[in-house]
Amino acid sequence: MADKLTKRQIFFNPFSKNNPVIVQILGICSVLAVTAKLEPAIVMGASVIMVLAFSNVIISLIRATIPTNIRIIVQLVVVAALVVIVDQFLKAYAYDVSRQLSVFIGLIITNCILMGRLEAFAMSNAPWPSFLDGVGNGCGYALILVGVGSIRELLGSGTLMGHQAIPQWAYEHGYANNGLMILPPMALIVVACIIWVHRYKHKDLQEK
């Protein structure tokens, strides 16, 4: 990294300027898969924050002792262990949501954001900045997930967190839920719209 980032930048950059989903376009698969409803989106976001923050810290702590040629395996083992913990935790305390998320909690292991942060940041930084970086990137990911999830649940099912959000009189006057919003293609289009608005506000991110 050419210029040294302050701790504040490390934490807040991933929220918007360097957002993992809408700027780096990482982790799109899980954004499509878990955002049909808001609740799983929030749980998924929280899980990724946890896994990302602690794997960053652990890798940062042992970064001097990891042999370079097996570092990916070591990173995977750390991430996998954390994912199993999160998965078991959800099964114990939030069984319904873990059923909805099904394999996608397990697939956090393959989420590009994790490997990206471990390789790009935790391998060359001290534990405390790594922790901030992990939480920041996790929050940036969760932010998009929650945004997409609320739009899709509101327009697709007329509810938010399972509670009816569109008033009943709208249905009585002929309003109908948009079935396409539940289907994966619409998640892509919603993400694209968020990117569209974001690039419009941040002209420096626009490709020439």
């Binding site: 109908a176 948009n178 079935g179 396409l180 919003m181 289907l183």
Partner: peptide, 10 residues
């Protein structure tokens, strides 16, 4: 197609 997938009953 949008109508077909969004509002199948219609």
């Amino acid at each position: 197609a949008f109508l077909f997938f969004s509002y199948p009953s219609q």
